[in-house]
Design a binder for these strands. Structure first.
Length: 1040
RNA sequence: GCUCGAGUGGCGGAAUUGGUAGACGCGCUGGAUUCAAAAUCCAGUUCUUUCGGGAGUGUGGGUUCGAUUCCCACCUCGAGUACCA
């Protein structure tokens, strides 16, 4: 007997592929290239669960398919191995994160290998490897040495900017830079000190050091990016986040806002993902308008950067606002500034000072989360100051309010209560007038924000104009006054690039004697992470790298090294370069923003990748990964790619042509309901039961006779059977255990004696139990559960009516802490990797998320056994194929399958091709097909999905080389041609019966044949049809 | 609130240039095989029915000879995002 021995077969071929480097991709090939990429994993300590491989299986099928189609396929894999969990483990145990990471990677590799992926492991990268992060540091230096020339619409070398400054200052420079960049002439530039020059250049560099208001997470001791915060708390751990000013490295991603938006049109990415990037970038068109503050003049030295400019000026304060509705400017009845706005303290009058300061203090205390949770409460304060309306010259009161965000636009708005609901609510609350500037609109109840139906009134030169025309005219008039212009505003902020962590890429940066940041020369890269004693911040609050004994840069000429502070200070200052090295490290997304290009030439130590490699591979053809990276990794990577493109290092300005988000495979958690305590109303007492009590739940209904009589023992079971209409242990607890318990309580505490049952409140909570103790009908194996931990060992269980304990089930994300993780190892052991691969594809559409349910895996497993039997039709189940010509039916089955599977793979509809295989094997089995002319191509068709069994069958068919590059069977239409068609005959659109008719009949002949049929006459019951629709080859519909 | 997506048997799901709704698998029911079980195989399985048939793809309308598919309104669920001026 030749059974399908999958464990043996799979181990054999996994070894074969590794030994023969079957999937090694060559950088030069006559073949056309195809690049299939997975989002590389973070190697966590928990290892892989069944949800992780979903996307890898899909991409592997596609990669294998493309090899069959004759492409030179690049399908690499690696590890995003810097990250928080390894560091937190290090803080707890003192174990170096590198060791933890190495261990975890070993587990990952073993688990990935056992699934039979066709990765080219010779190209593996790890972001935490110095040989890899050398190039992450290199890109950082390139960004530092670049500025964004808006006229050329691309990044350029900083030298070209310096040349312009030397020649003509910055007045004609059209660049993306800090808002507070002052104007200067060539003469002023040359008069600046080197330090001043450096400070100015930082305002232009694509990565720059600046005091920024950041999201500080005290619990994690680090800064978080906006996309690392969910609902006002940290994505990792759910800790509170506050706003704080810190000096941080930032990436000038805003320079690329428009190109990041435009680029979305030319890539084939999922619409929801594009939408969320579009939202994140948040382009809005409108105007910036300048309001002059009345009776208040700037007298002190102005401009924030006193290092650079210190010209005393004398002019009124100005408030710049951004609005998308310049057409409503005559509706302005007040202005609102964010409490953090820098002008607030300068313009507030003496009388209002106390109120304003109290308000600012109160809002500062509220966390992001509180502020978000409570958007309905209207708060604010009047500054006492007034601004001048640009057109009417009327005074406009200036308020502050926390509904205006400091981080968006200019942190100030012109409030138009009749046209904006928030302004309207604010005005109502503080009794500010609400002038109506809309024709024929009632604003007594709410603001009117419908742009399309807007006709402006009471607005001087805008009267009678619709929205679009009014906007144009308003901007024109503002420009004439010099108090405004059309403006595009983006929600996108520059990305903070510093993290106060140990386990990340060190910055190739030291601080010179002036305290200015200097880049290490490229030839000194990589700058390796130093050893530290502790992975926590230092006592003085410095990042963990502050603990490093040696973390100063010391360089003379071409010789440079990392030394201790003492060594640096004792060295000769003559010709010396260097200083303290940067203590922050780079964020998680740094290493993942160019890894896809590094795979093309991963061992190159001279360049990030060779031009030959990038010119051959170009870009990623198919990228598969989760949608959670929509506004993080996938936005930053596009930004770096565009930068690399500007510099001429990559040929494409979008790195991935097509992207697919695989859905999440969720787990089904199991719970037991635990009685926590009993509260007695009117008393503050909380009574705990002596032992933990769990109640059962069952969904299926058990009906039984109904009676009010019952008894119960303290085990919560052994009641009189069939006397109650009870379905679950939960009901039993409610109706019988709880009254029983109350009686017991009353005995012990006589003071409760007169209380009703309603005075006792039972608190239950759901406790996760490990899904491995739960059977498929949700009943729990209590014996094993009790061995799991002490709580269950000691506990009492109220069973359901059939003496079983049923768990509550709920679909949740798979996670170790929820005890709902299903591990692929056990499934591979029991059913094999091919079964797991097929089953994950068979679960449903790739992009949809779905709960894991192991029950159905037997279906695909028996399919594989049937497939195996198809090739083993000899005596005693020996391998047997014949050289006889196949039957027409078998050819039809095969070609139908080729066609469908090819279409399915091209459309990423992997679930339907698994069905197609099942149909195909069912049909061929019924036909008793054993012809090699059918079974050979079938093995190739199956091979992308179930590669191990396919290789084994291929070898048995007499081949000596891997099936991996066998060419995909060619579909031929001629085998599908039919001579007749089973016509569905419908009456008024409802199919009533079918009728087999030859394909070559004309419409008229078909109609005659159908009308003559007895069932037609029976359906018509003597009526004459009004109309007969005949679609040859499709359907016949009789109306009447 | 806004944006996007989705609603089909007991379950996962299939079918859309409009043309036989429920492919394929799970589960369930019955049978064969077996001392028994596992495994395997065969038959059935949307609901309803007076066994002729009738109804049926979230709800209500519309377009059409014909709608799961297109249009309008509504309901429900999921995802993202949010005082964005």
């Amino acid at each position: 007997m030749m059974n399908y021995n999958f464990n043996e077969i799979e181990a054999k071929w996994q070894k074969y592929w590794a030994d023969n480097q079957t999937f090694k991709a060559e950088n030069d090939s006559e073949k056309e290239k195809f690049y299939v990429l997975d989002m590389f994993p973070y190697p966590s300590g928990a290892g892989l669960h069944v949800g992780h491989p979903l996307g890898y299986i899909a991409s592997d099928i596609y990669a294998r398919y493309k090899r069959h189609k004759g492409f030179n396929v690049l399908h690499p894999q690696g590890y995003d191995s810097f990250g928080l969990p390894a560091e937190q483990y290090a803080i707890q145990t003192g174990q170096h994160p590198a060791i933890t990471t190495e261990t975890n990677i070993k587990t990952y590799r073993r688990q990935l290998d056992q699934l039979g992926f066709s990765f080219d492991w010779s190209r593996e990268v790890r972001t935490s490897d110095p040989s890899y992060y050398k190039w992450t540091q290199w890109i950082f230096i390139q960004l530092f040495n670049s500025w964004y020339n808006t006229d050329a619409d691309k990044a350029e070398n900083i030298d070209s900017l310096i040349q312009i400054f030397e020649k003509e200052g910055n007045t004609n420079v059209n660049a993306v830079c800090d808002d507070d960049t002052p104007d200067f002439t060539a003469e002023t530039w040359s008069a600046f000190s080197p330090k001043e020059k450096q400070a100015l250049l930082l305002k232009y560099r694509l990565t720059y050091l600046a005091d920024t208001e950041v999201n500080w997470c005290p619990a994690l001791g680090t800064v978080l990016a906006n996309d690392e915060i969910v609902n006002g708390v940290s994505e990792r751990g759910g800790h509170p986040v506050i706003r704080k000013k810190m000096t941080q490295w930032s990436m000038r991603i805003t320079a690329y806002a428009q190109r990041l938006l435009d680029g979305l049109d030319k890539i084939d990415w999922p619409q929801p993902l594009k939408d969320s990037q579009t939202n994140w970038i948040g382009r809005s068109e409108g105007a910036s308008v300048t309001f002059k503050v009345l009776n208040n003049t700037v007298t002190e030295r102005s401009r924030s950067d006193e290092n650079v400019i210190s010209t005393p000026v004398n002019h009124p304060y100005e408030i710049e606002v951004f609005t998308t509705r310049p057409d409503t400017i005559f509706g302005v009845s007040f202005m609102t500034l964010a409490p953090e706005h820098e002008l607030v303290s300068k313009i507030t009058t003496r009388e209002q000072k106390d109120e304003v300061e109290a308000y600012i203090e109160a809002t500062a205390k509220r966390s992001e989360r509180d502020r978000m949770a409570d958007v309905k409460t209207i708060t604010g304060a009047f500054t006492g100051a007034y601004a001048e309306h640009p057109f009417t010259k009327e005074p406009v009161p200036i308020w502050i309010g926390d509904y205006v965000l400091a981080g968006y636009g200019t942190g100030a708005v012109m409030s138009v209560p009749c046209g904006d609901q928030r302004d309207y609510d604010f005005a109502k609350h503080f009794d500010i007038p609400i002038p109506n500037i809309f024709e024929g609109v009632d604003i007594s109840e709410e603001a009117f924000a419908d742009k399309d139906n807007t006709v402006i009134a009471n607005s001087d030169f805008l009267n009678g104009l619709p929205y679009k025309k009014a906007v144009k005219r308003a901007i024109f008039e503002l420009e004439k006054l010099g108090q405004g212009k059309g403006k595009v505003n983006y929600r996108l902020r520059d990305a903070v690039f510093s993290r106060q962590r140990y386990w990340g890429e060190p910055f190739p940066v030291y601080y010179d004697a002036d305290g200015m940041p200097q880049m290490l020369d490229e030839k000194f890269l990589p700058l390796e992470l130093p050893e530290v004693d502790k992975y926590l911040p230092t006592e003085t609050g410095e990042p963990p790298l502050g603990n490093a004994k040696r973390w100063h840069w010391l360089q003379y000429g071409d010789e440079g090294k990392v030394v201790s502070k003492e060594e640096f200070e004792n060295s000769s200052p003559l010709g010396r370069l260097g200083g303290a090295l940067e203590l922050n490290t780079m964020p998680g997304w740094a290493g993942s923003s160019q890894y896809f290009n590094r795979y093309m030439d991963p061992h190159n130590d001279e360049e990030i990748f060779s031009q030959e490699a990038i010119n051959y591979w170009q870009d990623v053809d198919l990228y598969i990964g989760g949608s959670e990276h929509a506004t993080g990794h996938l936005l930053y990577s596009r930004f770096w790619q565009k930068f690399m493109f500007d510099k001429g290092w990559v040929p494409k300005d979008e790195f991935a042509k097509k992207l697919i988000n695989q859905g999440m495979i969720t787990g089904t958690s199991a719970f037991a309901k635990r009685l926590n305590e009993v509260e007695v109303s009117g008393f503050d007492d909380k009574i705990k039961s002596k032992c933990t009590i769990f109640t059962s739940k069952r969904d299926t209904k058990v009906s039984s006779e109904y009676s009010n009589e019952y008894t119960i023992d303290d085990e919560g079971r052994s009641w009189r059977k069939g006397t109650m209409k009870i379905q679950s242990g939960e009901d039993i607890a409610k109706s019988r255990f709880e009254p029983f318990f109350i009686n017991e309580i009353k005995k012990v505490y006589p003071k409760y004696e007169d209380l009703d049952n309603e005075n006792f409140r039972f608190n239950y909570s759901n406790i996760h139990i490990d899904v491995s103790y739960v059977n498929s009908d949700d009943s729990v194996n209590l014996e094993n559960l009790k061995k799991w931990n002490d709580e269950f060992k000691q506990a009492k269980f109220i069973l359901s009516t059939d003496d079983k304990f049923y768990a509550h089930r709920e679909v949740e994300k798979m996670s170790k802490s929820k005890y709902n993780v299903v591990n692929p190892d056990a499934i591979c052991e029991e059913y094999g990797a091919d079964s797991l691969r097929l089953y994950e594809m068979f679960l449903g559409p790739l992009e949809q998320s779905k709960p894991w349910n192991t029950a159905g895996i037997t279906g695909v497993h028996s399919f594989l056994k049937k497939l195996w039997r198809l090739y083993h039709s000899g005596p005693n189940g020996e391998f047997y194929v014949s050289e006889e010509a196949p039957s027409a039916d078998s050819l039809k089955t095969l070609h139908k399958t080729i066609k469908k599977v090819e279409e399915d793979i091209e459309n990423f509809s992997f679930n339907t091709s698994v069905s197609t295989f099942m149909i195909c094997v069912n049909e061929l089995s019924a036909q008793k097909c054993n012809s090699s002319a059918i079974l050979e191509p079938l093995a190739i068709l199956v091979s992308p999905y179930a590669p191990h069994i396919a290789e084994e069958l291929w070898e048995k068919l007499g081949h000596t080389t891997s099936i991996a590059t066998a060419s995909f069977p060619k579909f031929e239409e001629k085998y599908l041609v039919e001579s007749s068609k089973e016509y569905p005959i419908s009456f008024n659109g409802k199919m009533r019966f079918t009728l087999e008719l030859p394909m070559d009949m004309t419409k008229e002949e078909i109609e005659a044949a159908v009308m003559a049929h007895e069932k037609t006459q029976q359906q018509l019951q003597g009526r004459t049809p009004k109309k007969v629709i005949v679609v040859p080859g499709k359907i016949v519909n009789i109306v009447g």
